[in-house]
């Protein structure tokens, strides 16, 4: 294959990575932005989404599309419920203290991971893609499902943006983000907003995971990479900036795809981490972040 088509393939692969990463990182960014806490267990919500997707789709017999549809509705809902449970029983009780939250969510990370190992096991299991067609380019055929992933992720990102900027709940979320004390003085139940935001963050990660399991199998240790990459994306994009998160996810995702195809995935991770270091030194508020007042 010539260089041109080869690069095109690499960019396509990178775009799939970017699409899933943007959703996952947006979840982390929302929680980070609105609640001012770092959720180290974010990757485990991603993993739970994938594992539950396998569980739900294997329960449904018949066409793989039905199993997948059940999974993409149910898995994020269950993960959201688990996130609310964690928020109510742990984060609320430590009063969202930033340092304590890091330690507490490390604990949640291990609890979820070990529960997955106990009940799901150490195997990697696939979920069948809901659609099975190939898009034929002049140089190579490409999985149609991967293009569906890109489209679905774009729709979800737009939907999130719409909710945040055009709805009442989005306004309440943004007010809470900018000044939670004053928000309370205007009858906004801040701790309920926190619970919902934490659930939405986890559900975005879970949805991303359901989208990716037909491509990449479900495994109880799969949460590590999305967590690392989400942190990279949130730091580069800037705290609380949705636009920045999406742009950074595209930069990191596509460069990850291209470098992985031409060189090695390890080099891609090295460069992404180096980019974070540079951003932290040269522009600590992130590419699109606002300087804290």
């Amino acid at each position: 294959m010539d260089f041109g088509p080869y690069l095109f393939l690499a960019v396509l692969e990178g775009t799939v990575t970017a699409a899933v990463l943007a959703l996952t990182a947006l979840g982390l960014s929302l929680v980070f932005g609105v609640m001012r806490i770092v959720n180290v267990a974010h990757g485990e919500f991603f993993m739970l989404g994938a594992v539950l997707a396998w569980w739900f789709s294997s329960m449904v017999s018949g066409s793989p599309a039905i199993g997948f549809l059940v999974a993409i509705v149910m898995a994020p809902l269950v993960v959201g419920a688990i996130a609310v449970l964690c928020e109510r029983t742990v984060l609320k009780r430590i009063n969202y203290d930033p340092e304590a939250t890091i330690v507490a969510t490390i604990g949640i990370l291990y609890i979820i991971q070990q529960l997955a190992l106990t009940f799901y096991g150490a195997d990697a299991r696939p979920v069948q893609a809901p659609v099975n067609f190939r898009v034929v380019f002049p140089w190579f055929g490409y999985s149609g499902y991967k293009l569906v992933v890109i489209a679905a992720s774009a729709v979800l990102l737009l939907a999130t943006w719409f909710v945040l900027t055009r709805t009442r709940f989005g306004l309440i979320m943004r007010a809470t983000q900018f000044d939670s004390e004053t928000a309370q003085a205007f009858a906004i139940p801040v701790d309920r907003v926190y619970a919902v935001v934490f659930a939405i963050g986890a559900m975005l990660a879970a949805t991303a995971a359901v989208l990716i399991v037909p491509i990449q199998q479900a495994h109880y240790l799969m949460g590590g990479d999305p967590l690392l990459l989400s942190f990279i994306v949130v730091i580069i994009g800037g705290l609380g900036s949705i636009f920045g998160t999406v742009v950074a996810a595209i930069i990191i995702g596509i460069s990850d795809g291209v470098i992985s195809v031409f060189f090695t995935p390890t080099l891609a991770k090295i460069l992404a981490t180096l980019l974070v270091a540079l951003v932290l030194v040269l522009r600590p508020q992130g590419l699109f972040g606002k300087t804290p007042r």
Binding site: L171, R174, F178, E181, T182, A185, I188
Partner: peptide, 25 residues
């Protein structure tokens, strides 16, 4: 409550600040 230093939601528009006031009751 009109807090000291105003404490507007400074990233939000004037209309959105008013909207938050209206939503309260």
């Amino acid at each position: 409550y009109v807090p000291q230093g105003r404490r507007l939601f400074s990233e939000l528009s004037v209309a959105e600040n008013i909207e938050i006031g209206l939503m309260a009751r």
